[in-house]
Write a protein that binds this DNA or RNA. Structure first.
Lengths: 224, 224
DNA sequence: TCCGTTTTGTGACTATGTCACCGTCGGGAC
DNA sequence: GTCCCGACGGTGACATAGTCACAAAACGGA
């Protein structure tokens, strides 16, 4: 038996053979280039996406034209927001944008519905994904309301840094990630730089003192 | 055929006769007194609740001990947060508290799972409830990030007022509703009072100028 | 009535968001 | 090359919101 994408998803590995077969034959692997809009408000989707590679950022456009970052879908996770809207035949209010080149499994509505009906394991997978997303939103809200901006920025920088300790993002991008203003990011990161925790150049932040950032994060009982 | 609670729920009215029967026999109507904690973090629930009467407030305790209001479940809605955790066997991180005396239908895990498997209509009902909750959270986040506190307070007062234009809530309660500090509510409502929009007494706000409040809300393109 | 608790009010201060504007950088057009 | 434009980052001044400390007022029992 050859290696299947199904094994990349923890919750799906226990699927019975016939369900696996149905899932594989009833779905399709798709590739999407970085920057593509995967879903948009007012446009109802007909597929549930399971990410194999890359990341998708989900954000919402405010009435005022500004944007808030909501969450990021990583490889091995599902873009569950679409599910609700798929089955509920409702439109969603958020944008989904491929941050990197993305490959994903697209499960069309009919297959999805079928599997939810037939397989308890698949149901649990779906509900677990929901649960995860909702609790993520809860912590986001908590964070926005109670956490200081410097702590949140430090935390985010640690999260976004690649193996070389570099974050490729403009201040403006970081600002929408945190739901704050660009100026605030500028000021806060100047302060970080002054303390020797980071070095900055155009569109890029290099972490030179992870420990300092980490200490700041930890000092406020944050969850990271 | 006698009147059933099922008809109080839009999405369930189209259930086929056998599913209706199964739902009715497999569930139970429960009553809960105001103030009761319906669910709590770290305590996994075995029932999906559909509210028949009353309201439930869902809020999260922060690490710092403070609380954020997340959303309110009204009659005719389901307390869908429990669902995810029920099926995903995960604990949730939020509190649910009966704000008023509540009567609700409790659907145990087994019945729920059964119905999700069997009935497409029931599935759609569940996913629609999710969808609703998630988009609510999105607008909440949007609101917290972009909307001014005075606008949000005005909006909330209009929402919470009963037929006599009275809101029964202390400043502290209003503060957690908005995810802000009590002092801010005090100051803002003093300002509203100065403008003749409200009158205050201990634990109670009387709206005397709805139009003023409404104008403030409308003036900032808010959704109300 | 007296006392303790809850609710509300307020000043001073810090943190964050907004606005206006400028300097810098980098990449084409020429 | 150099000119120019647009994107990016920095900064001061000010408005709004959150925090802290503390006090006054309202209520409810003993």
């Amino acid at each position: 038996m050859k290696e299947s994408w199904i094994d990349s998803f923890e919750g799906l590995s226990r699927l019975s053979a016939d369900i696996r077969a149905e899932l594989e034959s009833g779905s399709q692997i798709v590739s999407v280039r970085a920057g593509t809009q995967i879903f948009a408000p007012g446009q109802s989707s007909d597929n549930l996406l399971l990410l194999l590679e890359g990341t998708v950022r989900v954000q919402q456009k405010s009435d005022t034209g500004r944007e808030v970052f909501l969450y990021r879908v990583h490889a091995g996770e599902s873009c569950v927001l679409t599910t609700a809207c798929m089955l509920a035949h409702e439109d969603y209010s958020a944008d989904g944008i491929a941050e990197t080149d993305v490959s994903a499994v697209a499960i069309p509505r009919t297959t999805f519905d079928e599997l939810v009906a037939k397989s308890k394991t698949f149901r649990e997978f779906v509900f677990a994904a929901y649960s995860r997303r909702i609790t993520d939103l809860f912590t986001l809200i908590d964070d926005i309301v109670f956490q200081r901006v410097d702590v949140r920025l430090a935390s985010r920088l640690l999260e976004l840094a690649n193996q070389d300790d570099v974050v490729n993002a403009t201040h403006a991008v970081l600002a929408t990630e945190l739901g704050t203003a660009r100026e605030v990011v500028s000021r806060t990161s100047s302060e970080f730089q002054r303390r020797g925790w980071i070095e900055q150049s155009r569109g890029e932040v290099r972490l030179t003192g992870r420990s300092g950032l980490a200490r700041l994060v930890k000092s406020s009982g944050g969850q990271g």
